[in-house]
């Protein structure tokens, strides 16, 4: 067994420097690596390019890095819940590359799987297709999308073991498995870190080969963005 355990977010993120490209898992603020984000705020690293489906909310998740002007560029699919994000984007302070959610997921997956590019129909005929090669397959137009890579991929899982094997919970899985594959260094933070042998190999979602460092998060706030309830 190759032991991937580090003692804290501080050690897990060592080596992240100004101007690097990071992937951060999560959908909205569900399944985000919140301990690592808190550490990035402390590190004051800036000029970051962040690949993440969303940009958090104003006072949680990646919104915290936006507030500190640590992010130079965001690569995302939806940024609707964050006023500071919208302000920085419309004023030109922040570069933003908006790409369709499925293309974002597949570009991360391709990056980790050694596939340099692929054709997808999503975005054909829209501004997303500008400057991209288009080609017909079976009579239907597709555009060429390139793989995404990151200096660090930072993911959040429910359970993990010392070998870096990961299990996610419910819809907190989202982008985490693909991003885990696509980092030069992948950091996994988990709610529960277990010794090897504790996880059933049949149930592991991300094989430890994709993970270089793993730690148990100090605490999880796990905020809810839209608390919707049934009355009766």
């Amino acid at each position: 067994m190759i032991d991937k355990v580090v003692s804290s977010a501080h050690h897990a993120l060592s080596g992240i420097k100004d101007g690097m490209t990071l992937m951060l898992g999560g959908f909205g603020i569900c399944g985000i690596p919140e301990n690592s984000i808190a550490e990035l705020v402390k590190m004051k690293t800036n000029g970051l390019t962040c690949i993440s489906n969303n940009a958090g909310v104003d006072d949680f998740g990646l919104g915290l890095l936006l507030k500190g002007k640590q992010i130079k560029k965001m690569i995302s699919s939806y940024v609707g819940e964050n006023e500071e994000f919208e302000r920085q984007m419309l004023s030109g302070e922040l570069e933003v590359d908006l790409i369709p959610q499925g293309s974002l997921a597949e570009r991360c997956r391709a990056g980790g799987a050694g596939i340099p590019a692929f054709f997808t129909p999503a975005g054909f005929g829209t501004e997303v297709a500008e400057g991209k090669e288009a080609r017909l397959f079976n009579g239907k137009p597709h555009i060429l999308e390139h793989a995404l890579h990151a200096d660090f991929a930072i993911v959040k899982a429910w359970k993990g073991d010392a070998a870096g094997n990961l299990i996610y919970k419910a819809t907190a899985k989202n982008f985490n498995p693909m991003m885990a594959m696509a980092g030069k260094i992948t950091v996994a933070e988990v709610e529960e870190l277990l010794p090897v042998g504790a996880l059933d190999p049949n149930e592991i979602h991300t094989p430890g080969i994709f993970v270089q460092r793993i730690f148990q998060g100090e605490k999880y706030e796990k905020r809810i963005e839209q608390r919707t309830l049934r009355k009766t």
Binding site: C108, A170, F175, M178, Q226, R227
Partner: peptide, 22 residues
């Protein structure tokens, strides 16, 4: 950890399945 694409809290029915974005 259980939301829909509108970020609303939801439930899962019997027979439900969770999967990654790809």
């Amino acid at each position: 950890d259980l939301i829909n694409a509108g970020k609303q809290t939801i439930t899962a029915l019997d027979g439900a399945v969770y999967f990654d974005s790809a």
